[in-house]
Structures are given as C-alpha cells and as structure tokens.
C-alpha cells in the first residue's frame, strides 16, 4: 500500500472557522474530515497524515507557512500529496497551490488538488500543477474527492494517463507526444482539416492557440544618451561551453552572460546552441544574432548611455508559452534590479 498525505485548511481540518484562520501549520496522524472520505475512495494508498493550516496564516505569511509545512513533512515518507478540494474558496485555493508546488519541488512526488474554475488559485497555479476541475462548494465534495482518488490511483499504479480534458483537470498548456489509437498520420489529418477549412466546415485544431493577451505599450525612453540598454535573444547564443545547459529545443532555462569590455562577440567564444536553424552563420559571427558590435559603436558615439554588462539568452524553438512567460518574468526581475531602462530583443 502506498502512502498519501493530505493538506487541509483550518475549517476542513476541524480546527475551527474564521476565528481559527490564524492557526499555525500542524500535522496530524491519519486522515481528518475530507481526508477520511478520500482514504475510503483511494484503492492503492492509505492516508498516513493530514497537514492543517489556517487560511489567513498562510495567506499572510506564505513563505513562513510553506517552510514550516515542508519541515513537518521532512521526516515523513509519502508517495503522493493531495490538497483540498478548495472549491471556490480563494485563500484556500491559493494555499493549496502554494503548498502543492513547494511539496512537488522539494520532494518530487506527484501532487494533486481540486478547485472550481473561478478560484484564483487556478490561474495562479494551473501551469505548474494538476488542478482538477471542482465544484463551487462543499456540496460537490464527494464527487471532487472521487476524481482526485481515481487519478491518484492511476498514478500510483502506473496506468496510462489521459489528457487534461479526458481526466478532468484544468489545462496546463503542456504538449505531449502520443500514439493515436486511430493511427491516422499527421499528413492525412492536416489535409482533412484544410479541406474542412476551405469548405467552411467546423474542425478542431490539434494545437489550440491560447487566447490573446495584449500588453499595454510601454512609454518610450525620453533620453537614450543616459539610458541603460540590455539585450535579450531567443537565438540561443551562449558561451561555447553552454554553462547553464540550455536545451537546444523546448528550453526551460535561460542564461545571463557577461560582455563587459567586449567590443563584439567573438566566434569561438560564443556560439548558438539553437536546434531550430542552421547555426553556421551565427557561429562564424555571433553578432549576426546579437549585435553587440553595433551597440558598442552607438555607446562609443554617445547615442546610448550604457550597454548593460550582461546579455540574456535562451532558445526560442518549441518553448511553451507558459515557460516563455515564466522565463520572461524571471529575466524581468533581473532587469529591474539592474535598473535597465530599455531592451532590445533579437529572435531567430
């Protein structure tokens, strides 16, 4: 029998209502409240412990609360971790997301939770976590637990897992390679789709494009001659030993590399590890992708104040929008701390 640990808030953990929402994290032996029902439904796992924490405590002290919870779990053995269901309860959903993400990152076990689609925890964590599509309120408790238990049993017994739609969790935006049961090859499928499109018939794309997300136009730089400019590229230019092991396709990592004192990027010092185009031209002269030589010239002429001492790089091919967004946000944090005024990004 495998072992499962459950996370609940103070209410479902049977500590109390709002007046107990400041309850510090604690761990109890066995299942409590909904965890008892989950234990009944799970066929291949037993719930050994239940972690309980007040919704307000974790909302207001997220880092501390998560650290304490990880500490409570550090001497426990478990094969899967399940939070909630959180229904439409916002603080609870955010707590389930934060705890699941930390537990997954720390212990590398599968983590599951369930929330109603309007729970803010869904938008915040669906890219990283499996969040089952749950009901609005405790009325759907049994059904939500049933879905969690069924999927947990599948994971624990190494059964094939379906897509987000088939299994009933919020789409993460991950792409998977699968063998289709109908064995129809991609060329046939795409031509079928094209014919349907030409004849104005409905068809379903196998690669749905996420909805548009427009960003307001940033105001221009008022004076470039005093501005700090940074360069980014998705062209995969890195030092020749690729110190951060950035992947040649479907990258999940980015790097930041010094150009301090360099007038240009020299071949043999930098190269591209991009797997989506012929690297010959850029390897022979990396400035063709990342125009450090031209930017230095503008800096020397005084047209720009300062070219930032580092450039940022990743590989753009095959990257999911969620990974691109995450890497973008990580880079932005760095740009802001470096006081960068404007950015040039080159893509291949």
């Amino acid at each position: 029998m495998k072992k499962a640990i459950v996370y609940l808030n103070q209410f479902f953990g049977q500590i109390g209502g709002e007046s107990s929402a400041d309850h510090l994290p604690e761990i109890k032996e066995g299942g409590v409240g909904p965890a008892l029902e989950l234990d009944r439904q799970l066929q291949h796992a037993q719930i050994t412990h239940t972690v309980v924490c007040g919704d307000n405590y974790i909302s207001e002290n997220k880092e501390d609360a998560v650290t304490q919870i990880l500490k409570l779990l550090s001497d426990k053995e478990f094969d899967i971790f399940i939070s909630g269901p959180a229904f439409k309860a916002g603080r609870y959903g955010l707590a389930c997301g934060a705890v699941n993400k930390a537990v997954h990152d720390t212990f590398s076990v599968p983590v599951l939770t369930s929330m109603h689609t309007e729970n803010p925890g869904v938008d915040m964590y669906k890219q990283d976590l499996i969040i089952f599509s749950g009901g609005e309120s405790v009325m759907s408790m049994v059904e939500d637990l049933r879905k969690l238990a069924a999927y947990a049993d599948k994971i624990l017994t190494d059964q094939p897992l379906g897509t987000a739609e088939e299994e009933g969790y919020h789409v993460r935006g991950n792409r998977h390679q699968i063998w289709r049961e109908d064995k129809v090859c991609a060329a046939d499928r795409v031509v079928d789709m094209l014919l349907k499109k030409i004849h104005d018939q409905p068809f379903e794309s196998e690669l749905p494009i996420p909805e548009m997300d427009r960003v307001p136009i940033a105001p221009p730089v008022s004076d470039l001659t005093t501005a700090r400019i940074a360069v980014l590229t998705s062209g995969g230019v890195v030092p020749v030993n690729n110190p951060d092991h950035i992947q040649s396709a479907s990258a999940t990592r980015w790097g930041k590399y010094s150009i301090e004192g360099m007038q240009r990027l020299e071949a043999g010092v930098f190269k591209t590890i991009h797997g989506g185009y012929d690297p010959t031209a850029i390897n022979a002269d990396p400035n063709r992708c990342l125009p450090i030589d031209a930017l230095r010239a503008y800096e020397t002429e005084g047209k720009i104040g300062h070219l930032y001492d580092f450039f940022y790089s990743t590989v753009g091919t095959g990257v999911t929008q969620s990974d691109a967004g995450r890497m973008g946000r990580e880079i932005v944090a760095d740009l802001l701390s470096a006081g960068i005024d404007a950015v040039i990004m080159t893509s291949t």
């Binding site: 960003v215 967004g325 880079i331 932005v332 740009l335 950015v343 990004m345």
Partner: peptide, 12 residues
Amino acid sequence: MVKEVERAGIPI
C-alpha cells in the same frame, strides 16, 4: 518574453 518585459513598463 517580450511581453513580460513590456508588462513591467520597460520599453522593448
């Protein structure tokens, strides 16, 4: 990536 930079108010 471009959008995340611009979202932070940095022209790109």
